[in-house]
């Protein structure tokens, strides 16, 4: 759309079928997972190679459709053997009611906070902050949803979005805590730990189930689609 408006463009392309359909003027196909078009976090040399190859396509004169492939996988694409999360947690249990979920999640958060703070100190950043809720409020908000309430937290105007972005913040905090120390694990290693070995992961699955039963259509729709990614949905 920008090229039609007179601007030279080059795209870091992640999905070949989409490139074949849209035929952008210049595309560099990269072999990285969705969500990381530059490939490797924290590796400026690797990112620079990717970006420079994409930008060099702007100097080609053999259009109107130029397609190249970046040759290398990024190092953390694959599972890192022996990786352990930077916080050790007891396995999640079973919780009879919202009060038990709230207590278990609050206790787990206390254990996760030190690793999360180490991540923030090490990388100088945190991606927690979409929900507008302080983390101390998350257990109560989550438990209230399990009890059937419909909390609304500014800046949002619906329970669906309030809870959706709280879920995003929970995932962000745990993802950061898991990789506070040592070299980068694969994304899959973090995901498997979060969704299978933490109270928080099980809580989000429980929130999804509750949302799916809700008379609030917004919560039902958003909860069904945006609380838990497909690979970690309960079977059946």
């Amino acid at each position: 759309m920008l090229e039609e408006r007179g601007l030279p463009t080059t795209v870091l392309a992640l999905v070949l079928p989409q490139v074949e359909k849209t035929r952008p003027p210049r595309a560099l196909m990269v072999p990285f997972m969705l969500g990381r078009p530059l490939g490797e976090p924290g590796d400026s040399d690797f990112q620079r190679r990717v970006l420079l190859q994409a930008l060099r396509l702007l100097e080609r004169t053999d259009g109107p459709v130029v397609l190249e492939h970046f040759p290398d996988d990024n190092p953390s694409h694959f599972d890192r053997p022996g990786w352990e999360p930077s916080v050790t947690l007891p396995p999640p249990g079973t919780y009879a009611d919202a009060d038990e979920w709230e207590t278990a999640f609050r206790d787990e958060l206390e254990a996760v906070i030190p690793a999360w703070e180490r991540f923030e100190a090490r990388f100088g950043r945190t991606t927690v902050g979409l929900s507008g809720q302080p983390l101390q409020d998350w257990p109560d908000c989550a438990a209230s949803v399990l009890r059937g309430a419909l909390p609304v937290v500014a800046p949002f105007e619906s329970t669906a979005l309030s809870v959706r972005f709280m879920c995003d913040d929970i995932k962000a905090m745990y993802g950061e805590a898991a990789q506070a120390d040592g070299p980068a694990p694969s994304a899959g290693q973090i995901d498997r730990w979060f969704w299978r070995q933490t109270v928080a992961g099980q809580l989000l699955i429980a929130l999804r189930a509750k949302a799916m039963e809700s008379p609030n259509n917004g919560l039902k729709t958003v909860g069904g689609r945006f609380f838990v990614p497909a690979p970690y949905l309960p079977k059946g």
Binding site: R36, P41, G175, E176, A184, A187, F227, V228
Partner: peptide, 15 residues
Amino acid sequence: INFDRAGYQRDINVV
């Protein structure tokens, strides 16, 4: 929610 955030958590430049 079906794309990676772990890379961006470490480094915004990956996005």
